[in-house]
Design a protein around this nucleic acid. Structure first.
Length: 877
DNA sequence: CCGATCACG
DNA sequence: ACGTACGTGATCGGT
């Protein structure tokens, strides 16, 4: 059998992987992207090459001169980012656990070890493959030594392969001559001086002709061009030195024997454990079952009624249970886990009807102190649950509070983060299948999913509650989030009435003008194209028509509003485009988009999501009812089709500047608090202070600017952002900011304090102890860190406001229900509540809204609301 | 499936 | 010198 030696240039590949993959951490916060990328590259080449021998080379100490690590920085000696540095010892540990030899020698660089090993290998009759991202290694290529350079190219991964002849073909020089070329050119990042004034082109020309520096020097008179000749003559010694530096050493003392490098089974138990801690599911899949006492749920299938009865009555006596419920048409599957030990699976069959199963599940809530599910909101109705049921536990909601930055809160996420158990996800188990059912039968994968879900829901109760307690968020969870879930559920069920016909008419009325604008745009452009395509539009505007103000972004020209508005006064086509954009947006997203969501009851039942935002706000989908047009009249008009049901009236209440009031409270700034105590126009007041004019003489422009500054403060102000918004210079923006902070000094102190706290603790909190982790503050990337600082300033403000409206929402909703009113809460739009009030209850509803919203939190400034009624959402706002 | 754009607070 | 306002979701075009 052919002997094949594969070598990996450790730091080089690790470095490649680090920059190729997006930032990634495991649940303990360890950065893992480079390790994962390295392993994927390693496996790819192992699969491809099937080597008999394998080793990885590393520089022993921190990389010194000739190293890829620094080249990414084009010669500037920035240190390795911390995010990468911490991964270096870990990958070494993983490789050791895989029984893969590491080549490291004090005083030698990885290149030298690779070079020496490849020479010996070739002498011993091996085929040698060297995997590296570093082109310098090309000098090692021979007939039997291939350099393989993985690259990312246009989304895909490609490999450049070089035997000696490939180097010849690509560069026109032999691998050995490659050294001379580099010696002539020099390389700042490797500290190789080279010959000044000789670059890649000249170097190639000289070496092609004379084969080496020495030979070129011997024939110095023939060296062309003249300039190169003179330089070579003058700096010859430096060139020879450079050659020494550029040449990879081929004679290192290497302790590693080929026996040691023999490729053994890398799928060891030790490696399995490490990869599990790293949470590399995809890599773990390569291991066959025997290594990790694989976690499994002992799922007991129950099909007899008397057995089911026995289990449910036993369950009713327990302390904690977990449920997982899935429906498909008339079929229902129910997973039940008792005390985190016994897990059962029930399905609709025989005497086990849906009514029985769901009825029993609902019963558990009456006797078991804690019943846990993953997303209870969807099941509140069928389980007959309300905000009064204290046994409700929602694992997803608890996990969201503990880390609101996750994208999903499925059982596998929670199991990994809070139980330390890696489970296959729903997605992985189902693979391509879209449902856990097939032809009314629960698939075997479905059984597993339900088993895992019920188990995790139950087993995580303890850990999650403990963490909620430790972080001081238990009462936030119990008193705000759980009741909020009920209120959201109520709103989803109720929906909002939409006049289908009026919506259609609204859309139709846009068509004519859209067509007209399209023609005008084609006429101005002198060609027809897809106006909706930013790419085509950019080309037409800035290339064909040669309008000024082009360029931006990597994908082409930016055609966003702020770019177009700058040149709007110069060209009529720009106004047409802006209007066209506005109208088509209204047509496709709102007129047509909303129409698709109107149910048979003529209402839209959107979803309100409680585990999406990083700050604690609610989000709205299918459709998004929180971004219905309001700012521009034409768009705002769409609110005329949102109507109360016959006999009802809309009552709409929104907080007035809740975020600024929260800021006044949190900062304790006397001046700001005083302004609100006097119920002054805060923007005018700010303008007066910042621009130094009496409050009565503030111009509308000054007020507008001050308003932008106030907004900016809440967003974590930067001079640049403000200057963009107000279309002023950065210097001016900075002056506004400085004056603002002079006026409200405590605000500045407060914002700084939050940033400091974020840096120290890794997170910031709201008035009600909601946490927002800010990993960006630890980033070595300037921009990321900057972003983190703004987040630290904004999150407590936006988050506290979100807490407050949740409280108001809960109380309003409960009060309406408690008083058995016909009126109902139907929408929440961040600082606004919309109620469909029975005509006879309008005054009572207004009182409830006013009282509950204003008293939702006790701040050092009053909370104030605007409240309106109307026969459409348009009128009520 | 991602980026650009734009709707909201 | 860097290249930014905070938080969302839907639609479209283009890969």
């Amino acid at each position: 059998m052919e002997k094949k030696l594969m070598l990996i240039d450790g730091h080089s590949i690790l470095n490649r992987a680090f920059y190729a993959l997006p930032d990634m951490t495991n649940s303990k916060g360890l950065h893992t992207n480079a390790i994962l990328g390295f392993l994927n590259i390693m496996f790819k080449f192992l699969d491809e090459e099937k080597p008999t021998h394998f080793a990885v080379a590393f520089d022993l100490s921190a990389p010194t001169f000739r190293h890829e690590m620094f080249k990414e920085y084009k010669g500037t000696r920035k240190p390795m980012p911390e995010e990468l540095r911490e991964q270096v010892p870990v990958i070494k540990e993983v490789l050791k656990a895989m029984d893969i030899p590491l080549m490291m020698e004090e005083g030698y660089e990885a290149d030298d070890l690779l070079g020496t090993m490849s020479v010996i290998g070739e002498q011993e009759g091996y085929q040698v493959r060297i995997i590296s991202g570093d082109r310098d290694l090309l000098q090692l290529a021979t007939e039997n030594v291939q350099i393989r350079i993985p690259k990312t190219k246009g989304g895909g991964n490609v490999v450049e392969d070089y035997f000696a002849e490939d180097v010849m073909e690509t560069y026109g020089v032999t691998p050995k001559e490659f050294i001379d070329m580099k010696a002539l050119m020099g390389d700042a990042s490797d500290n190789i001086p080279g010959i000044p004034g000789i670059g890649e082109k000249t170097a190639a020309k000289i070496i092609k002709e004379f084969k080496s520096i020495e030979n070129a020097y011997e024939h110095i008179e023939e060296v062309m061009p003249k300039r190169a000749k003179n330089k070579l003559e003058e700096f010859y010694d430096q060139g020879v030195l450079s050659k020494e530096l550029a040449a990879i050493k081929l004679d290192c003392p290497i302790e590693l024997s080929f026996d040691d490098a023999k490729l053994n089974d890398i799928f060891t138990g030790e490696a399995y454990q490490l990869l599990k801690q790293l949470e590399f599911k995809s890599v773990l899949k390569r291991f066959d079952g025997e290594h990790g006492e694989e976690f499994s749920v002992n799922l007991k299938k129950v099909s007899e009624l008397d057995e089911a009865d026995r289990i449910f009555s036993k369950a009713k006596k327990c302390k904690a249970a977990g449920l997982a419920v899935y429906h498909e048409q008339e079929y229902t599957s129910l997973g039940l886990c008792i005390e985190g030990t016994d897990t059962f699976l029930f399905q609709t069959e025989g005497f086990l009807t849906r009514d029985y199963l769901i009825g029993q599940a609902g019963e558990l809530y009456r006797t078991v102190p804690r019943v846990s599910m993953m997303n209870v909101k969807e099941f509140l109705d069928e389980l007959s649950l309300s905000e009064d049921d204290k046994s409700i536990f929602d694992a997803a909601l608890a996990a969201y509070l503990l880390n609101p930055l996750k994208s999903t809160y499925e059982y596998d996420d929670i199991s990994r983060d809070y139980l330390g158990i890696m489970l296959p996800s729903k997605k992985e188990l189902l693979d391509k299948k879209k449902s856990i059912f097939e032809e009314g039968k629960l698939l075997p994968e479905g059984e597993q999913i339900i088993g895992y879900e019920a188990y995790v829901a139950c087993a995580c109760i303890g850990p999650l509650r403990k963490k909620l307690m430790e972080t001081g968020m238990l009462s936030l969870y119990e008193e705000i989030e759980i009741p909020t879930m009920v209120a959201l559920h109520d709103m989803e069920v109720r929906g909002i009435h939409v006049d289908r016909k009026a919506l259609k008419e609204y859309g139709d009325q846009l068509i004519g003008r859209i067509e007209e604008l399209r023609e005008l745009i084609y006429k101005e452009a002198g060609e027809e194209f897809n106006i909706n395509s930013p790419k085509q539009l950019g080309v037409v505007l800035f290339e064909h028509m040669k309008l000024e103000g082009g360029k931006k972004t990597k994908t082409g020209y930016s055609t966003s509003v702020d770019v177009l508005e700058k040149i709007e006064h110069l060209y009529p086509i720009i106004s047409y485009i802006l209007e066209y954009r506005q109208l088509t947006k209204l047509k496709s997203t709102y007129a047509d988009g909303l129409a698709n969501y109107i149910s048979d009851d003529e209402r839209i039942h959107g979803k309100f999501n409680q585990t999406i935002t990083a700050t604690g706000r609610i989000s709205s989908t299918e459709p998004n009812l929180q971004n219905i047009p309001a700012r521009v009249e034409l768009g705002r008009a769409i609110r005329k089709v949102f109507l109360p049901e016959e006999g009802y009236t809309f009552v709409d209440a929104d907080y007035s500047q809740i975020e600024l009031r929260v800021l006044a409270h949190l900062s304790g700034d006397k001046n700001l608090i005083h302004a609100y105590e006097l119920e002054q126009d805060i923007h005018a007041r700010t303008a007066s202070e910042v621009f130094g004019v009496p409050i009565g003489q503030v111009s509308s422009i000054q007020r507008r600017d001050a308003k932008a500054v106030n907004f900016g403060i809440v967003y974590g102000l930067s001079a640049f952002g403000l200057s963009q918004d107000l279309k002023i210079t950065r210097k001016q923006a900075q002056e506004y900011i400085d004056k603002y902070f002079e006026t409200y000094p405590k605000v500045k102190e407060y914002l700084n304090r939050e940033v400091e706290k974020g840096k120290k603790e890794g997170f910031v909190t709201t008035m009600f102890q909601r946490i927002r982790p800010i990993p960006e503050l630890k980033s070595s990337n300037f921009m990321q860190r900057n972003f983190g600082e703004r987040v630290a300033m904004n999150s407590p403000i936006q988050g506290s406001a979100a807490d407050i409206i949740k409280i108001a929402m809960i109380r309003v909703n409960m009060e309406l229900k408690k008083r058995k009113l016909k009126s109902r809460l139907i929408l929440q739009i961040h600082d606004e509540l919309l109620i469909e009030a029975h005509d006879s209850e309008v005054e009572e509803v207004k009182e409830i809204l006013t009282r509950e919203m204003m008293s939702a939190a006790k701040l050092s400034v009053p909370l104030s609301i605007d409240i309106h009624t109307g026969n459409s959402w348009y009128e009520a706002k």
